[in-house]
Write a protein that binds this DNA or RNA. Structure first.
Lengths: 215, 215
DNA sequence: CCATTATTCAATAAATCAATTGAATAATTG
DNA sequence: CAATTATTCAATTGATTTATTGAATAATGG
């Protein structure tokens, strides 16, 4: 008979996966490495933790098979074990946005602080010819996957590459998504130089997920 | 500027929701009350915990707005705050089934112990006229929602109601889903009485989710 | 082979979480 | 109003988790 020990095993096992993703630092790691494989040092720098601490969190994720590792020379590169991991993260993110007025407010206030109105959506842009879509993430993340028709202009290179950009078009930046600051900074720089600029909050990953989900 | 404190707030808030669902007992509670509102005593009995313990877990879930309460007379009835909560739970369940050979093995061994082959799927049943679909959950859960064409025969009443059942059809039982034991017990009873019986592992909730997701 | 670099391991202390117990609250019934 | 019942609260204990620190490992380049 399917007894209590069966249920205990089942819910225990699922809760172990849940526990592995239930730490803010590890959520940030997942959100970050979803864009492309990163080594421990990248992750530590991005998240502001010590290398030892980052490594420890990565081990926790690895123990539950949420991330995979690949050794390249001296470095170990971490990436998500499968697309489903990213899907679970976005599910949790969207559930929290639904349930938590606090999170919605935090995001809203950040928009106000950045002097944006509501970011545009992809639908609002589709079909417009006066728009140039900029992927301001590092080039390797762009290579791994990007929104169709986007141009790779990493934030770090944006200033030097301003001459390449069309002056008569609306420049729309995007980055790693809703919680990433790269597009904000790009827009700020562009507006300071007199360009018409804005952002969308969807990421390349969210775009990909949205286009594969119905299938 | 979107600073570290912004990210800290964001990931903290999301991790609080994750933490709330990252306990095996609370997962079991979510899985249970998804079928319909239940009072603390129901929940304590179903999960085998003390009433005080169950209440404490329910408070944890309520603090994060995952469950809603309604007072009816002396009792407080708990149910999921929204369909999205159930969706997140199934997402986590399916991710774990994907990532964890241990969970797959536990489920598989339970099937062997119950002497079933692989449970049927709804697709295999659709269109067949020699099949009678039995919802063996308590009646109130059936009332709240069920798979089309199913008949409500709660496990507790099954024995007395055997005469109602068609002897010439294949009786397919379903219950609260993959981790619920009601259908197993129903099939065992039916087979012992000489009926052709089997089960499907999809629940009324999974069915509903699957049919609303594409929309 | 030594020095360097990237990463992981191990040990600790502070914080948080879970289960248990018994008391407190609050509505209902006689 | 007293007794009963359902539920929640509060305090305790033991177990986990987190961040920090410093040492250990392992691969590479000179």
């Amino acid at each position: 008979m399917r007894s209590r020990t069966f249920k205990d095993q089942v819910y225990d096992e699922i809760s172990r996966i849940a526990r592995a993703i239930s730490n803010p630092r590890r959520l940030e790691i997942i959100d970050f490495i979803a864009n492309g494989e990163k080594c421990v040092e990248d992750i530590a720098r991005q998240t502001g933790m010590s290398i030892a601490n980052a490594s420890q969190h990565l081990q926790t994720l690895k123990k539950e098979r949420l991330v995979r590792t690949e050794k390249k020379g001296v470095q170990v590169y971490y990436s998500l074990a499968s697309r489903e991991v990213y899907r679970a993260w976005t599910g949790l993110r969207d559930l929290t946005l639904l349930l938590s007025p606090g999170l919605r407010e935090t995001v809203e206030q950040s928009r106000i602080a950045n002097d944006f109105g509501h970011p545009l959506t992809l639908e609002q842009l589709s079909g417009r010819t006066d728009v140039c879509l900029l992927d301001v993430r590092p080039e390797d993340e762009f290579q791994k996957g990007h929104i169709p028709d986007a141009v790779s202009v990493p934030l770090a290179e944006l200033e030097q590459r301003l001459p390449e950009l069309p002056k008569d078009k609306l420049l729309i930046a995007y980055c790693r998504g809703m919680f990433c600051t790269l597009a904000d900074e790009a827009v700020k720089l562009l507006q300071a130089r007199g360009y018409q600029a804005g952002k969308i909050e969807i990421s390349a990953l969210d775009y990909e997920l949205a286009s594969t989900q119905p299938a």
